[in-house]
Structures are given as structure tokens and as C-alpha cells.
């Protein structure tokens, strides 16, 4: 099959993850990975982002597929259940708002900037080498640290399930995927009734 330009977006994902090791402020670019899928689903009512442009999905597909870093086993049924998918979405939201709250506290001057990346919501990794001061308020940097933590954590979870199950297992419980599918369901005239 002919490759299109968007089949190479995994390179963008790799560059994004790498940039966070050099200057944490690049983490802000990750807002694109949040906004574009939402805009596509809200405006066109499709999962065009997942289907075509998701660099992360492509990266997992490549590593697990061509590089063979996946057992290619079926994902356990509880992981594809609606309860787990929606539960993970809610959990993700809670963690995201907690991150926004921490950012707010730095903006408000209540809390000092913490130059750490939090892995899997608990492990605090020192990350000071990626921050060299900025013209902006420290809160801008705090958001970058928090946002990069979200991206790195989800990448690691995705890599683990890629190895254990199918390459793109992350897509099953990806909060963005679940959210855009819910938007599409709400926008679809027939609701969630799909006939084969």
C-alpha cells in the first residue's frame, strides 16, 4: 500500500518525546495531540486522528509489528470492557486536573516550581537538566513538567501493553480515543446503534 505523508507522524511523536529531555517547555507542543483529535471529532464527527494521524499509535504499531516487540496476544477482556475504558478516562481526568491545580498553585505563588517529572503518578524523577529558566512565569514551566509527565506515563503504559498484548493495545484504553469515540457516538444520528 502506498505510504502517505501522515504515515510518518511517528517521527513527530519520537521527536516530541526526545525534546522533553532537552527543554521541558517543548512539552507544550503536546497540546496539539490533545486538541487536534478533539477538534476532528467535534467538527467532523470522526476518529480521523486515531485512524490516520496518531503518531503514538503508529510508533507502537511499528515497534510491536515490524520490530517484533510484541507477543501479539489478545488483550484481557476486562481491559476492553466499557467499565475499564471509562474508568481509566475518569482516572486520567482526575490526574490531569490535579496537574492543572498544581500549575495554578505555582501561578498563584503559593507553591514553588518543582522541576520533576512524575512517572506513573507516583515516582518523582529529577528533571532539572531540561529547564534553564524562561522569560515566562514559573507556572508555564510547571505545566510543562506536568504535561510531559502525562505524556511519558502514557507512553510507558502503552509500551508495556504493546509488549504484553497486541502492538496497539494502548488504543483500546487510550483516554483520547475513548473520549473522541464518545463524542462521535453523541454526534452520530443513530447513536451507538451500528448495523453490520
Amino acid at each position: 500500500m502506498k505510504k502517505r505523508w501522515y504515515d510518518y507522524l511517528w517521527i513527530v511523536e519520537l521527536i516530541y518525546m526526545a525534546l522533553g529531555f532537552f527543554n521541558i517547555l517543548f512539552a507544550w507542543l503536546g497540546m496539539l495531540f490533545f486538541c487536534i483529535p478533539l477538534i476532528i471529532s467535534l467538527v467532523w464527527g470522526t476518529k480521523g486522528y486515531c485512524n490516520r494521524y496518531c503518531g503514538r499509535g503508529q510508533l507502537f504499531g511499528l515497534l510491536g509489528g515490524r520490530f517484533g516487540l510484541s507477543r501479539k496476544k489478545d488483550i484481557p477482556s476486562w481491559m476492553k470492557s466499557k467499565a475499564f475504558r471509562y474508568g481509566f478516562l475518569v482516572f486520567f481526568f482526575v490526574m490531569f486536573f490535579q496537574m492543572l491545580w498544581n500549575t495554578y498553585l505555582v501561578f498563584a505563588g503559593v507553591q514553588n516550581l518543582r522541576q520533576a517529572v512524575t512517572l506513573l503518578w507516583t515516582l518523582k524523577l529529577p528533571w532539572h537538566w531540561a529547564y534553564h529558566g524562561t522569560l515566562f512565569h514559573p507556572g508555564v514551566a510547571q505545566f510543562a513538567f506536568g504535561f510531559y509527565s502525562v505524556m511519558l506515563t502514557s507512553t510507558i503504559l502503552g509500551l508495556i501493553t504493546m509488549v504484553l498484548f497486541k502492538p496497539r493495545s494502548w488504543c483500546v484504553y487510550c483516554p483520547m480515543g475513548t473520549m473522541t469515540q464518545l463524542i462521535c457516538k453523541a454526534k452520530s444520528p443513530k447513536g451507538n446503534i451500528v448495523t453490520e
Binding site: K47, C184, K187
Partner: peptide
């Protein structure tokens, strides 16, 4: 396809050699 359990990721669309699958309305 078990449509109720489908996550509409589109992996199937990419591998289908005959273009026989599509993701309908993102659902």
C-alpha cells in the same frame, strides 16, 4: 465485527488489502 466492543481505532482499515473496512462515523 463486534461493533459494541470496537474502539474505532482504525488499525483494521490500515491492513485491509481490499479496502473493505471503514470506520463508520467514528463509532
Amino acid at each position: 465485527i463486534d461493533a459494541g466492543a470496537c474502539v474505532a481505532c482504525g488499525c483494521c482499515v490500515k491492513v485491509c488489502p481490499l479496502g473493505a473496512i471503514s470506520v463508520f462515523r467514528g463509532v
